[in-house]
Design a protein around this nucleic acid. Sequence first.
RNA 1: GCCCCGGUAGCCCAACUGGCAGAGGCACGCGGCUCAAACCCGCGGUGUUGUGGGUUCGAAUCCCACCCGGGGUACCA
Length: 833
Amino acid sequence: MTETPTHDAARYDFHAIEERWLPVWEERQPFRSGRPDDDRPTKYVLDMFPYPSGDLHMGHAEAYALGDVIARHWVQKGFNVLHPIGWDSFGLPAENAAIKRGVDPAGWTEDNIAQQVSSMKRYACSFDWDRVLMTHRPDYYRWNQWIFTRMFERGLAYRKHSNVNWCPKDQTVLANEQVVGGLCERCDTPVTKKKLNQWYFKVTEYADELLDGLETLRGSWPDKVIAMQRNWIGRSSGADVAFEIEGRDEPITIYTTRPDTLHGATFMVVAADSDLAAELAEGADEATQAEFATYVEKVKGENEIDRLATDREKTGVFLQRYGINPVNGERLPIWASDYVLADYGHGAIMAVPAHDQRDLDFARAMDLPVRVVLDCTDENGQAYGDPAETGIAAAGDGTLVNSGSLNGMAKAEAIAAITEELSAAGTGDAATNYRLRDWLISRQRYWGTPIPIVHCEACGEVPVPDDQLPVQLPAAEGLDLKPKGQSPLAAATDWVNTTCPSCGGAALRDTDTMDTFVDSSWYFLRYLDPAKADGPFDVLDAKRWAPVDQYVGGVTHAILHLLYSRFFTKALRDMGMLDFDEPFSALLNQGMVQMDGSAMSKSRGNLVRLSEQLDEFGVDAVRLTMAFAGPPEDDIDWADVSPAGSAKFLARAWRLARDVESEPGVDPATGDQALRAVTHRTLHDSQELVEGFKFNVVVARTMELVNATRKVIDSGAGASDPAVREAAEVVSILLSLFAPYAAEDMWAMLGHEDVALATYPAVEESLLVEETVTCIVQVKGKVRGRLEVPPGISEDELRELALASDGAKRAIGDAGIRTVIVRAPKLVNIVTA
RNA sequence: GCCCCGGUAGCCCAACUGGCAGAGGCACGCGGCUCAAACCCGCGGUGUUGUGGGUUCGAAUCCCACCCGGGGUACCA
C-alpha cells in the first residue's frame, strides 16, 4: 500500500480526502487500459475530446462525470476498458487568442492543455494518460494529410469553384456551423456568399449508406440525432425531366418530386445565380439582359439574414426565353429567381403553381397562370379551393385531371406511370436527390493541417508523396495571422515556394488548411496507438478495440462531427483499413448545464464557476450532483440542484465505513437478512440502471441502501453486524462511479485498496426472493384490500382468497360478479355486474 | 410552417413499459441531541399525472385532438 489514510478521522473532510488520494492514483494509474497480452473482453468508452479552451467549466464537468460512470462501471465488471482523452487543438480558439495577444498559437495551446490535464486529474477522470493525443502536433496531422492523399487518389477529395459562406468583416470563409442565424458566430456580421475555388470531400458519394446505416443505430443512438441526420441528408426521390429550349441546342433537365403534375407546369424557373441563368439571359434582348444583371447583383449582395426572412416576397426576372413541356408541347416562359437554388438538383425547375406553394407564391406575384391537375383533398379530407383564388397550393393526394393519359389515376400511380412514359420516350428518368452537400474542407487560416497538395503549372494538382509528410506548418513568428481573405500561409514565401514532386519544376504549395472537423473524424482510431509512426492506426488494433462501444458527448455535434466520422469510417473501410461500417455503436448525449433557466454566460451574469463549486463542495459532490440531477440527456439547471445536499449524503455514506466494526472478510451470511436483501437488490438493479444510463436512479438506490444501513447500525444489530460491512462495501463500490474520492477513502477504511479496480460483487439470487408479496384486491378497478401471499401462489388460489376477503365482500355487496381478472401474485380485479 | 422530445407534489425527479401514483433528493415544518445553535438523528406526502375525448376490467403509461415548454430545420422543387 502506498499510503495508509488516517482511519480515526472523525469527520468527512473532502479537502483532506482529495489531497490524500490524488497522488496515490497518480502513482498507481488504475485506468491504464490493457496492453496486447490482456485477454479480458474489451470496451471502448469515449468522451468527445475538448478544445484546449482554458480551464474546465461546468459543461465539461457534466460530460466527464457521466462518461466516467460508464467507464468505471465496465472496469468493475471485469472489462479491459479503453477510456482515452486528447485535445482537438487546432482551430479558432487558439488562433483568435494568438491574434489577440500576439503570441504563438502552439505555446498558448500547450499551456492550456497542461492546465486542463491537471484539472481533469483533480476531477478524478478515469482516463488512460498514456494515450493522450493532440491534433496540432505534426505526428497527428501528418496522418490527416496521409488520409487526405488517399481520398485524393480515390476521387473523394477534389477542388471546385463554388459559392461559399463569407464573412465580410473577418475576410474569411465560414463553415456552415459557423453561421448562426445568418450571422458570423464570431463577430455577428451578416454572412454573404463568395465564389471561391476550394477543396471538398465527396461525402455525397456515401449519401445512401449514411442514410440507410442510421437504421442499424436505432435504439443505440438517440432518436433525435438519427432524425437530425436523416433530415440533413434529405434524400428525396422523383424524376429528372428534359425540357427542350427554343433557340438552344441542349435541353434543360429539371428535377421534380412530382412528375405526376407535369401537365400542370405553367412556367420554368432557373436559379438566378447559376451559370445556366447567365447563359439563357445572353440570348435575350438588351433590356432583359440589363434587368437580369441588376437582379443578379441584388441577389448576390443579399446576406443570409435577408434570405432567411419568412414571408419573403418572391422576386425574379422573365428571361424572354421558352421551354417546351415534353408531355404536351406547351411553351413555358423561363424565369430567373433566387427561390431556386443553384446547387440543388440541376438548378432549374418546372413550376406547378397549383400544387406547390412556392411556385404558387411566385405565380401570384408575377401574374402567371395556375392550372389544377390533381383533384385533391388535404389530410383532413377537406377539398381545396381554387389555388389561384385562395393562395393555398393543393399539396394533397387525389385524382389526376387535365393530364391526358394520367387522368383518373391516384398520385402514386401517376408518378409511376409518367416516369415510365418519360423513360420510354427518352425525355426523363427516375432520379434521387440529397440535401447533403459535399464537405468544404478548405480554410483560409493558419492554425490547421496544411493541405498536402502542390500546384504545378505543368502537372496540375500533385499530392505530396507520403515519405515527405508531414507538410509542417511554417513558424507563426513573422506571419500576420489576422483574417484578410487569404490564408496567412500565403505570406510564408519560403514555405510556399517549392518544387513539384512529379516533374521537379518550380511549384507552389496549397496555402489553405483543413477544417478541424477532419481532425476529429478519425481521432478515435488514433487513440489505439497514438505514437504509431508508420501509419494512422494499426488494422489489428482497430479489429481489437473498434468501433467505439460507447460515445459520450453533447448534442451540438449531432450532425456534422458524427456525420463526418461516419463518412471517414466508410471511406477507410473501403480502403481496406477497417472491417466495420459505423464508428460509434452507441451514443449518449448529455444535456447542458444552465443557471436560472438559461445558458450560463458572463454577459448574462449567471456564470457558475466550476473551480468555486469544487472548492466549496468538493469534486465528489459536484460529480454526484451532475449524475443525480436527472436523466443524463436532460439539461441541468444548477439553481434546481443541490451540491450541498450531495456533500451531505457523501458524509453520511462515509460515516458508514467509519462506523463498521467487523473485520474484512467476515462472512455476511450470518448478518441481518433484511439489510442483506436491500444490499443485493441494489446490487442487482444497479447494473441494468447504469447500463440503461439511469444514473440518477442508481444514486437514489444507493441513498436507500445508505439509509437502511444507518438504521441497522443505530437501531438494529449494530455496527458489528457483518451485513453492515457488506452493505458499506457495496456502497463504496457503487459510489466509486460517482464520487471516487469518498469511495476510495471508505474502501481504505474498510481495509482494501483501489476501489476502482474492485470486482463488482456477485449478486446472491436467493436474497432477491421475497417471502411474501402484497397483492392488491380491486373491485371495478378501485383498491378495496390487500393480501400478503407467497410469490408462487396459483391464480385459482389467489382468486378464492381475494373473493373471500373482507374488503372485497364489502365492496361487492349484492352485486353479481361478472368476471375476475387475476395477475398472480400482485393483483386481483373483481368486476361486478 | 415542418420534424423531434418533454409536461407527475412548491422544486429536481422515480414509477419493473397497462396493474396500490411515490423510490431518492431539495425546500419547508415538528421533535430529539445542545446552555443555545450548527452538524447529526428521527418524524411529516392526495396531486384534476398539461387539457379534452377514446381503447381497456384497469391508463401517468396505448390512440386521437388541442394547450404549454424546449430543441432541430427552414424556399432542397
